[in-house]
Amino acid sequence: TTVHVNGVTYHFPNPEEAKKFVDRVVKEAGLTVEVKGNQWDVE
């Protein structure tokens, strides 16, 4: 699973890890998340 955060790419072994990361980032920074298949874009 690939997560893009403001142009930076993070790779995770599974969607659960990616979701935990995204949830944390979104809570801390108040960002928006767009999910496209296995790819997350966070802005």
Score class of each variant (00 low, 15 high):
residue 1 T to I: 15
residue 1 T to N: 04
residue 1 T to Q: 04
residue 1 T to D: 02
residue 2 T to V: 11
residue 2 T to K: 05
residue 2 T to Y: 13
residue 2 T to Q: 05
residue 2 T to E: 04
residue 3 V to I: 08
residue 3 V to M: 02
residue 3 V to R: 00
residue 3 V to K: 00
residue 3 V to D: 00
residue 3 V to P: 00
residue 3 V to G: 00
residue 3 V to T: 00
residue 4 H to L: 14
residue 4 H to Y: 12
residue 4 H to I: 15
residue 4 H to E: 10
residue 4 H to P: 00
residue 4 H to W: 12
residue 4 H to S: 13
residue 5 V to C: 14
residue 5 V to K: 01
residue 5 V to P: 00
residue 5 V to W: 15
residue 6 N to W: 06
residue 6 N to R: 04
residue 6 N to H: 06
residue 6 N to A: 05
residue 7 G to E: 02
residue 7 G to C: 11
residue 7 G to H: 02
residue 7 G to S: 02
residue 7 G to R: 01
residue 7 G to I: 06
residue 8 V to P: 01
residue 8 V to Q: 07
residue 8 V to R: 11
residue 8 V to G: 03
residue 8 V to E: 08
residue 8 V to A: 05
residue 9 T to V: 14
residue 9 T to W: 11
residue 9 T to L: 09
residue 9 T to E: 14
residue 9 T to C: 15
residue 9 T to D: 14
residue 9 T to R: 09
residue 9 T to A: 13
residue 10 Y to C: 14
residue 10 Y to P: 03
residue 10 Y to W: 03
residue 11 H to K: 04
residue 11 H to A: 03
residue 11 H to M: 04
residue 11 H to V: 07
residue 11 H to W: 15
residue 11 H to L: 05
residue 11 H to G: 01
residue 12 F to W: 01
residue 12 F to T: 00
residue 12 F to A: 00
residue 12 F to Q: 00
residue 12 F to G: 00
residue 12 F to Y: 01
residue 13 P to T: 12
residue 13 P to C: 14
residue 13 P to Q: 10
residue 13 P to R: 04
residue 13 P to I: 09
residue 13 P to M: 09
residue 13 P to K: 09
residue 14 N to S: 10
residue 14 N to H: 02
residue 14 N to M: 01
residue 14 N to Q: 01
residue 14 N to F: 02
residue 14 N to C: 11
residue 14 N to W: 01
residue 14 N to G: 05
residue 14 N to L: 02
residue 14 N to T: 13
residue 14 N to R: 00
residue 14 N to I: 02
residue 14 N to K: 01
residue 14 N to E: 03
residue 15 P to I: 14
residue 15 P to K: 08
residue 15 P to W: 15
residue 15 P to Q: 11
residue 15 P to C: 15
residue 15 P to N: 09
residue 16 E to D: 09
residue 16 E to C: 09
residue 16 E to W: 06
residue 16 E to N: 04
residue 17 E to P: 00
residue 17 E to T: 04
residue 17 E to Q: 05
residue 17 E to I: 03
residue 17 E to R: 01
residue 18 A to G: 01
residue 18 A to M: 03
residue 18 A to S: 01
residue 18 A to I: 02
residue 18 A to P: 00
residue 18 A to C: 08
residue 18 A to F: 03
residue 18 A to H: 01
residue 19 K to N: 05
residue 19 K to T: 04
residue 19 K to S: 04
residue 19 K to W: 08
residue 20 K to Y: 04
residue 20 K to I: 10
residue 20 K to F: 03
residue 20 K to S: 07
residue 21 F to N: 00
residue 21 F to W: 05
residue 21 F to K: 00
residue 21 F to A: 00
residue 21 F to R: 00
residue 22 V to N: 02
residue 22 V to S: 03
residue 22 V to R: 05
residue 22 V to K: 04
residue 22 V to Q: 03
residue 22 V to C: 12
residue 22 V to L: 14
residue 23 D to K: 03
residue 23 D to I: 02
residue 23 D to R: 02
residue 23 D to Q: 04
residue 23 D to W: 01
residue 23 D to V: 02
residue 23 D to H: 02
residue 24 R to K: 13
residue 24 R to C: 15
residue 24 R to A: 12
residue 24 R to S: 13
residue 24 R to P: 01
residue 24 R to E: 10
residue 24 R to W: 14
residue 25 V to T: 04
residue 25 V to K: 03
residue 25 V to Y: 12
residue 25 V to D: 02
residue 26 V to A: 12
residue 26 V to L: 15
residue 26 V to G: 08
residue 26 V to S: 12
residue 26 V to F: 14
residue 26 V to D: 04
residue 26 V to N: 10
residue 26 V to Y: 12
residue 26 V to E: 08
residue 26 V to H: 08
residue 26 V to P: 04
residue 27 K to R: 12
residue 27 K to W: 06
residue 27 K to C: 13
residue 28 E to N: 10
residue 28 E to K: 09
residue 28 E to A: 10
residue 28 E to H: 09
residue 28 E to R: 07
residue 28 E to I: 10
residue 28 E to W: 05
residue 28 E to P: 07
residue 28 E to Q: 09
residue 29 A to F: 12
residue 29 A to N: 10
residue 29 A to C: 15
residue 29 A to I: 11
residue 29 A to P: 08
residue 29 A to L: 15
residue 29 A to Q: 11
residue 29 A to D: 07
residue 30 G to L: 08
residue 30 G to K: 06
residue 30 G to P: 05
residue 30 G to A: 07
residue 31 L to F: 12
residue 31 L to S: 08
residue 31 L to V: 12
residue 31 L to E: 06
residue 31 L to N: 10
residue 32 T to C: 14
residue 32 T to S: 10
residue 32 T to N: 10
residue 32 T to F: 04
residue 32 T to W: 02
residue 32 T to E: 08
residue 32 T to Y: 03
residue 33 V to H: 07
residue 33 V to C: 14
residue 33 V to S: 07
residue 33 V to G: 08
residue 33 V to E: 07
residue 33 V to T: 07
residue 33 V to F: 08
residue 34 E to Q: 11
residue 34 E to S: 14
residue 34 E to Y: 02
residue 34 E to M: 07
residue 34 E to L: 07
residue 34 E to D: 11
residue 34 E to G: 08
residue 34 E to P: 07
residue 35 V to R: 07
residue 35 V to T: 08
residue 35 V to W: 04
residue 36 K to M: 11
residue 36 K to G: 12
residue 36 K to L: 13
residue 36 K to H: 14
residue 36 K to A: 13
residue 36 K to C: 15
residue 36 K to N: 13
residue 36 K to S: 13
residue 36 K to T: 14
residue 36 K to Q: 13
residue 37 G to H: 08
residue 37 G to S: 06
residue 37 G to M: 10
residue 37 G to I: 13
residue 37 G to L: 13
residue 37 G to D: 13
residue 37 G to N: 11
residue 37 G to T: 09
residue 37 G to E: 10
residue 38 N to T: 05
residue 38 N to M: 06
residue 38 N to P: 14
residue 38 N to F: 05
residue 38 N to C: 15
residue 38 N to I: 05
residue 38 N to W: 03
residue 38 N to K: 04
residue 39 Q to H: 15
residue 39 Q to C: 15
residue 39 Q to P: 07
residue 39 Q to T: 06
residue 39 Q to A: 10
residue 39 Q to I: 14
residue 39 Q to G: 12
residue 40 W to E: 10
residue 40 W to C: 15
residue 40 W to G: 11
residue 40 W to L: 11
residue 40 W to N: 11
residue 40 W to Q: 10
residue 41 D to Q: 12
residue 41 D to N: 05
residue 41 D to M: 08
residue 41 D to C: 15
residue 41 D to H: 15
residue 41 D to I: 15
residue 41 D to T: 11
residue 41 D to E: 14
residue 42 V to C: 15
residue 42 V to G: 12
residue 42 V to P: 12
residue 42 V to M: 06
residue 42 V to A: 09
residue 43 E to F: 10
residue 43 E to W: 03
residue 43 E to P: 07
residue 43 E to G: 09
